[in-house]
Amino acid sequence: MSKYLYYPGCSMEGSGKAYHNSLMPVCEKIGLELQEIDDWNCCGATEYLGINKIPAYALIGRNLALAEAQSNGAQDIVAPCSACYLNLTKIDSYMAKKNGVDELINDALSAGGLSYEPGQLGIHHLLDLIVYEIGLDTVKEKVVRPLTGLRVAPYIGCMAPRYDYAKRWSDSEHPLELDWLLGALGAEVVDYPLKTHCCGGHMPQIGPDTAYELIHRLVDYAEEVKTDIMVAVCPMCQMNIDAYQNETNQHLGTKHKMPIVFFTQLMGLAFGMRERDLGFGSELVSAKEAIQKIGSEVPKKKRKKKDKFALPMPHPLGNGILKNGTNGKELILPTEGRARGGRA
């Protein structure tokens, strides 16, 4: 078991309960021991930063300071919520630059008897932790019920891969970590170019028209490529697409009916856990119908006879082959059947 400090974030107690309920048994299964940071506070989401900068930084700083003080043998911090993950890594990285921000935050923290030395603890999103620290091989070993026949759209959202302060992702715009993970579970992963586009963030509250448009774009394209179910890694993404989908339909006259669940819920299913122990049923757009497709026959792809006129494609970057010992930043390219690459 590897022990990690767990920063749940406020949503995990409310709208993101299904995430919390599913990640707990799943993490245990793959050997991740989570130790909740005692008395953590809200990260401020995207709201506090727009009111007061230093207090917003100090608010996040308190969590980092608590984590450091409580680390005691635990390795690194893990946050399942992308917004929390972004805020934690951002402040850690700003403080590590030692250009005055660290002094300001520590000054504020000292008023509460706390302090924080940046760079001491690694900060992970739950997804990167599972892909890079636990590894896809371990995940595959635990799969007893492959998600065959389920067409999933990997929707990673913005705040996990951007701004990649902790340098954990294969790309900031088209990261493939969620594709790989869902593939390892046996699901059929659709090519979803909007995988890191915005779910609307806080816009449902302050500018609903903007939010409806963004939600519509995401769901519309998922439907276009015949997705059964969308998969989220962030409680805000899940909340917006799930809870506001009906309102979006009313507002835009659309008829979307696209379920979205957390990746840990699908991991649990693949690991053979029961739906109700994984928070299924709490989504407003029911995932029931989609889940029933698991195990269904996948129609075999007709092998297209290679068009004799077609021009070859360039090597894709990030085709899933990872160099050992990197955090996913360096991807190696296949070389078989290629000429000496002078311009690789």
Binding site: L311, P312, R340, R343
Partner: peptide
Amino acid sequence: NVLDDIYEVGMN
């Protein structure tokens, strides 16, 4: 047949 990465930049 070998894909020519140099002169044909992978196009031929």
